[in-house]
C-alpha cells in the first residue's frame, strides 16, 4: 500500500481517544492543581483523613487478596480444563465464558441470595448448629472479595487455558520419568513456564478489582467504601466535585502505577529465550 495513506486511517481513532479520554481527564485534573493551596487542600486532606486512607488501603487489600485467591483457584481449574480432550475442553470453555459474559449486576445479586441474612449460607450454618443467629457476611470486606473472585475467576481461567495449552507436555513427562511427583512437577516445572501467563492474568484481575464499582456497591454496602464508590459518593451524594476529581486522579495513579510495576515484573521474570534481549 502507498505508505502515506495509512496515516489518515489512524486519525479518527487518534482524535477520538485524545478528545474523549485525555481531554476530559485533563479537564477534571486542572481545577485540582490550579494553585498550590487548592492542590494541598484537596490531596493533603485526602491523605490526612484516616477515613480516606482506610478506603484506599481497603481498595488495595481487596485487590491483592482477590488476585491471590483467583490465581490459587484459577491455576488448577484451568490446568484440568486445558488437559481435557478437545470436545470436552470446548464445552467447558463455553461454560466458563457464560458467567463472564453475564451482567455483573446479576452475578453480584446472586451472592446476595447466598450471603444475605436469610441467605443459604446462614441457613446452612444455623441448621448444622455452628451459629445460633444469622451472621453478617453480606456488606463486609469478605463479601466484596467473594464477589470480586466470582467476577474475575472466569477471566483468569480463560487466559490461563490459553497459556497452558501452549506448554510442551513432554517436559512434564521428562520430569515424571526423572522421579518428580505431580505436586513438585506443578511447582518446579509447570509454574516457572507459566509465569508470564499468571502475571498477565494477575494484572487484569488486580486492576479490575481495584477499579471495580458494581461489586463493592452491591456487596459492600455503605460502610465499606472503596475508591470507586467513594468517588461516586463524593460527587453525587455530597456534591463535592473537586474532591471526587482528586480521588479519581489518585485512583488512576495508583492503579496505573501498580500495573506498570507488575508489567516490569513480567519482563524480569520472563526467562524464555526469545525475550532475553
Amino acid at each position: 500500500m502507498r505508505a502515506n495513506n495509512g496515516k489518515y486511517l489512524l486519525l479518527p481513532a487518534l482524535i477520538s481517544v485524545a478528545l474523549f479520554t485525555f481531554y476530559p481527564i485533563i479537564q477534571i485534573a486542572l481545577p485540582t492543581i490550579k494553585d498550590f493551596s487548592t492542590f494541598k487542600d484537596l490531596y493533603g486532606s485526602f491523605f490526612t483523613s484516616t477515613y480516606n486512607v482506610r478506603v484506599l488501603g481497603r481498595t488495595f487489600l481487596i485487590a491483592v487478596i482477590t488476585t491471590f485467591i483467583v490465581l490459587l483457584i484459577g491455576l488448577p481449574v484451568s490446568l484440568w480444563i486445558a488437559r481435557q480432550k478437545k470436545n470436552l475442553r470446548q464445552v467447558l470453555s463455553i461454560l466458563i465464558l457464560f458467567p463472564m459474559l453475564t451482567n455483573a449486576v446479576v452475578r453480584n445479586f446472586a451472592w446476595i441470595i447466598i450471603l444475605g441474612r436469610d441467605g443459604i449460607v446462614n441457613k446452612l450454618l444455623m441448621a448444622i448448629g455452628i451459629i445460633s443467629k444469622p451472621a453478617s457476611i453480606l456488606y463486609t470486606n469478605t463479601s466484596i472479595v467473594i464477589g470480586s473472585v466470582y467476577l474475575f475467576l472466569p477471566i483468569m481461567i480463560t487466559s490461563l487455558i490459553g497459556s497452558i495449552s501452549e506448554l510442551n507436555i513432554e517436559v512434564e513427562e521428562a520430569a515424571a520419568v526423572l522421579g518428580s511427583n505431580p505436586f513438585s512437577t506443578l511447582i518446579r516445572v509447570i509454574l516457572p513456564q507459566l509465569t508470564t501467563g499468571l502475571l498477565t492474568g494477575a494484572i487484569l484481575v488486580f486492576a479490575g478489582t481495584m477499579t471495580a464499582y458494581t461489586t463493592p456497591q452491591i456487596l459492600g454496602g455503605n460502610k465499606h467504601l472503596v475508591m470507586s464508590t467513594l468517588i461516586y459518593q463524593q460527587a453525587m451524594t455530597l456534591g463535592n466535585w473537586n474532591s471526587a476529581s482528586a480521588i479519581a486522579l489518585i485512583l488512576i495513579l495508583v492503579s496505573a502505577l501498580s500495573m506498570i510495576l507488575m508489567k516490569k515484573g513480567v519482563k524480569l521474570l520472563d526467562r524464555r529465550p526469545d525475550n532475553a534481549n
Binding site: 476530559p24 481527564i25 479537564q27 477499579t211 464499582y213 471526587a244 476529581s245
Partner: peptide, 14 residues
C-alpha cells in the same frame, strides 16, 4: 488503563 468510573465521571463533566 483509566478506571471506567473515572472515564464516566470525566465525560459527564466535559
Amino acid at each position: 488503563l483509566i478506571p471506567e468510573i473515572v472515564i464516566g465521571f470525566a465525560l459527564y463533566q466535559s
